[in-house]
């Protein structure tokens, strides 16, 4: 496994896109800190970017890497290596290198600005944890889609649609339901619906950490009540972890039966 991971890493470290991604976060971090002149505000702005962008990049990189390394995969399959090792090694190679780009790209400017002496350190930390979770989730989803579709264009299209659905359409439907059924008590529904979507869940986890949930009104209070308890936190992280574990499990299942 470590060898596959090493070569996936090696492969990605030669790709220009890994550096573009890293530099993008570096620049974003520096510019936001420069403009806001305040760590907490920069974290809020960053959250809005990360919540949408990290899943998108994870999806695109995951699909691209899978299709690009098909030759490498075929070469590996004829070697005495377990299939599971090959695919999980490649998945971890992509996910870890993306997560590192995120952590280093944002971490460097924030640490340089004096993150460790600031009260915002936990907010920033929760932002990074959500970002890392989202990277692992969406890279795994992308690998799943690519594994099931030989046709590159179709795989790419479906992966983008999945991102679009979870990042935009889901919220749209969610809002419509809230408006349509506003005469009914919806706090339970709102809570469950936002826990089920990893993007919404990450957003709420960061927002609540930032103590601006007062802006969210009555539902915000319900959320605060739920996520404020240790049970709520455990459930949220459990759901995020499930979003990683289930797609990874499917990668193992599908790859074991696939013909090359």
């Amino acid at each position: 496994m470590l060898k596959i991971l090493k070569y996936s890493f090696f492969d990605l470290s030669r790709s220009l896109w890994s550096y573009v991604y890293f530099l993008f976060y570096l620049l974003l971090g520096i510019i936001l800190l420069f403009l806001n002149n305040d760590l907490s505000n920069a974290v809020i702005t960053l959250m809005n970017v990360i919540i949408i962008l990290v899943p998108l990049i994870g999806t695109i990189f995951g699909v691209m890497y899978y299709y690009d390394s098909r030759e490498f995969t075929e070469l590996l399959l004829a070697q005495p290596i377990k299939r599971r090792t090959i695919f999980i090694g490649q998945y971890l190679g992509v996910a870890i290198s993306l997560a590192l780009s995120l952590i280093l790209g944002l971490g460097i400017p924030f640490v340089a600005y004096g993150l460790f002496e600031s009260a915002a350190i936990w907010n920033f930390f929760s932002l990074l944890v959500s970002g890392v979770f989202l990277t692992f989730i969406f890279t795994a989803l992308a690998f799943n889609i690519a594994l099931s579709h030989e046709n590159k264009i179709k795989g790419f299209g479906l992966a983008i649609l999945l991102w679009l659905f979870l990042a935009v359409v889901y919220d749209g439907i969610f809002l419509l339901i809230l408006v349509y059924f506003q005469d009914y008590p919806l706090d339970k529904f709102a809570l469950i619906a936002s826990v089920l979507n990893p993007i919404d869940l990450s957003r709420i986890l960061v927002l609540l950490k930032l103590d601006i949930s007062a802006l969210l009104g009555y539902t915000g209070a319900v959320f605060k009540l739920f996520f404020g308890t240790s049970q709520g936190v455990i459930i949220s992280f459990g759901v995020l972890a499930l979003w990683v574990v289930l797609p990874v499990y499917r990668i193992i299942r599908v790859s074991a039966k696939k013909d090359f």
């Binding site: 030759e71 004829a78 377990k82």
Partner: peptide, 19 residues
């Protein structure tokens, strides 16, 4: 998978990682 350590295989079309 371990039996493959005693097999040498030449694939029909040489697909290699190009970079």
């Amino acid at each position: 998978w371990n039996y493959r350590k005693d097999i040498d295989y030449l694939p029909q079309i040489a697909h290699f990682p190009g970079n």
